[in-house]
Amino acid sequence: MGNTDNQGPLWEVFIQTKPGAPYKHAGAVHAYDKEMAIENARDTYTRRHEGTAMWVVKSEDIVAVQPEDADAFFDPSDDKIYRHPTFYEIPDGVKHI
């Protein structure tokens, strides 16, 4: 196949292990179209009964936070511990919590 990358675009694969469970990222495959993407994902990631449902999505369609922006996105929450429920003391009178 030479040095040129002609394997088609990348697709991200998400698998649900059982009905109702969240879809988890399993990896990525190359494919030229949607049908090929879901087939390749099946052949690569679900041969050993890993799941009952699957999504594939073109990697380029995913909007991601760039690593250099991570500080701006995530760090401001560091000193805001009151955003966690454990910050609050529960009054003795409150039941069922």
């Binding site: 002609n6 088609g8 090929m36 087939e39 390749n40 052949d43 690569t44």
Partner: peptide, 9 residues
């Protein structure tokens, strides 16, 4: 195979 995924398939 023509590429890895098709080789697997």
């Amino acid at each position: 195979g023509p590429f890895l995924e098709e080789d697997l398939a």
